[in-house]
């Protein structure tokens, strides 16, 4: 039986309320006093901050428009942003968000294009696939974080080292999906298309391509998520702007409230992106039957 929408929403909200409530109580109501008559908390604010403080900080970040980094007279534009280590980056939270988004978007686009192209090539050329198989596995097994410093060395502290990190994550997801998608085109659909008189080019356009795309789209949530992860981790490890940078800066000064505020914004941002992906997906995959678990 499907759960009513409002009921589901209420239950979801309840989870947040309980979690925040426990956090709030633990961080603001003292459980005892220590030797100097100072209150002792279950969740000391220095380590855990408090939900209201975090909320205030988030609001302040958006209303103030400035987040402590060097202010700069130059107006925001993408050209300056692309320059390595320009201190004019990231004046406002919107600019940090914009930078993380652009990095994620570029990582997603480049990774997807490369993944689709190579996935196709490998699927249609078994020899190529067999030759590169161990290398693909090798690179896929590599924890991408270890590549981040190298990318910074090669591409500098600007957005491209983050994009590169995101690409290495997105590429493999898209690649494996497209590879699988092209190889697992239903033989009946292929035979039917051939009997209808399709040439190799028409087969590509009407059969292989849509099939591969459908597999790519089915991993859209994962690959978009990884694109953002790549961007944020890259920023975290060395940058002058972006959400990852904000969190890293706050951690560097033991500003736990700042860390949580950054995480909150990141979480909201990811939810928003995920929602957009769902919209795109519903539009592109209208022809897909609903998953078995959603039928009933």
């Amino acid at each position: 039986m499907p759960i009513a929408r409002w009921k589901l929403f209420l239950l979801q909200a309840l989870v947040a309320v309980v979690a925040l409530g426990v956090w709030h109580v633990g961080a603001t109501i003292p459980i005892s006093l220590d030797g100097q008559n100072k209150p002792v908390y279950l969740l000391p604010p220095f380590f855990f901050s408090a939900p209201l403080d975090v909320a205030q900080r988030v609001v302040k970040m958006f209303t103030d428009g400035t987040v402590k980094i060097a202010t700069c007279a130059e107006p925001f534009n993408i050209a300056t942003m692309l320059q390595t280590n320009n201190s004019c980056f990231g004046k406002t939270i919107w600019q940090h968000l914009a930078i993380t988004s652009i990095e994620g978007l570029l990582a997603f686009a480049i990774g997807s294009i490369a993944g689709v192209a190579l996935g196709f090539w490998f699927a249609r050329r078994p020899l190529v696939a067999a030759v590169f198989d161990p290398y693909i596995k090798m690179f896929n097994a590599l924890p991408r974080v270890v590549l981040a410093p190298i990318f910074m060395l090669w591409l500098g502290l600007g957005i491209w080292s983050k994009v590169a990190l995101g690409v290495t994550l997105v590429f493999f997801i898209v690649f494996f999906n497209v590879y699988q998608g092209v190889r697992e085109v239903s033989p009946v659909i292929l035979a039917n298309a051939r009997m209808l008189g399709m040439s190799e080019r028409q087969l590509f356009r009407h059969v292989y391509w849509p099939s591969a795309l459908s597999w790519m789209f089915s991993s859209l949530h994962t690959s978009v998520g990884f694109a953002i992860i790549g961007a944020v981790v890259g920023e975290y490890l060395g940058s002058a702007a972006g959400l990852g940078y904000l969190i890293q800066q706050a951690e560097g000064t033991f500003d736990v409230t700042g860390v949580f505020a950054g995480m909150t914004i990141l979480a909201a941002f990811v939810l928003l992106v995920d929602w957009l992906v769902t919209l795109v997906e519903n539009r592109l995959l209208v022809w897909k039957p609903p998953a078995a678990s959603q039928q009933v």
Binding site: V188, I189, G197, S199, Q202, H206, W287, P289
Partner: peptide, 25 residues
């Protein structure tokens, strides 16, 4: 023309487009 036992329609096309495609080819 060959009518298969299993479903051979292209799932990403509507019924009309599936039929029209046979001509467009």
């Amino acid at each position: 023309g060959y009518l298969f036992q299993q479903d051979a329609l292209m799932p990403w096309k509507t019924a009309r487009d599936n039929i029209a495609l046979a001509l467009e080819i």
